[in-house]
Amino acid sequence: MTTHFISAEIDLKETPIKLSQAIESELQKQGEPLRWAITKVDTDKQTAQVEAIVTKQMTNN
């Protein structure tokens, strides 16, 4: 298992509960999220920058 630092841009036009679900869903595409934080908000574009640590299973090739 390896850990990776990732960042993602999330649309802020959701309700707070749906925003959390949208963040988790986006992070799941990259691995299993350990922790995440919203680090920047662009009010003009209505987006949030999210930074996270995720884990991924190593594949044996």
Rank of each mutant, 00 (worst) to 15 (best):
Q57E: 12
A22R: 13
V41P: 08
A48I: 07
K13W: 01
M1V: 12
D44H: 12
L34M: 04
L12I: 07
L19V: 13
I6C: 05
S20E: 12
R35T: 03
K13M: 04
P16M: 08
Q30M: 03
V41G: 06
V50L: 15
P16K: 09
G31M: 00
T15R: 07
A8I: 09
A22T: 15
I53P: 05
F5A: 03
G31T: 00
Q49P: 10
A37D: 13
K18H: 14
E51M: 15
K18I: 08
R35P: 01
V54C: 06
N61A: 15
P16R: 08
S25H: 15
K40W: 10
L27I: 02
H4C: 01
I10C: 02
R35K: 09
H4T: 05
V54A: 06
N61G: 14
K18T: 09
E14K: 11
Q46W: 00
K56N: 04
T39M: 10
Q28C: 08
I10F: 03
S20L: 13
T15I: 00
K18L: 13
E14P: 03
K45D: 11
H4P: 00
E9R: 07
D42R: 02
M1T: 14
I38T: 15
E24N: 09
L27G: 03
T39W: 13
I10T: 05
Q46L: 00
A8T: 10
L12T: 11
T47Y: 01
Q49M: 14
I17A: 15
N60M: 10
T15F: 04
S7C: 03
Q30V: 04
D11S: 12
I6Q: 02
T15E: 09
T3H: 05
E51K: 15
H4I: 03
G31Q: 00
I17E: 14
T15Q: 07
F5W: 05
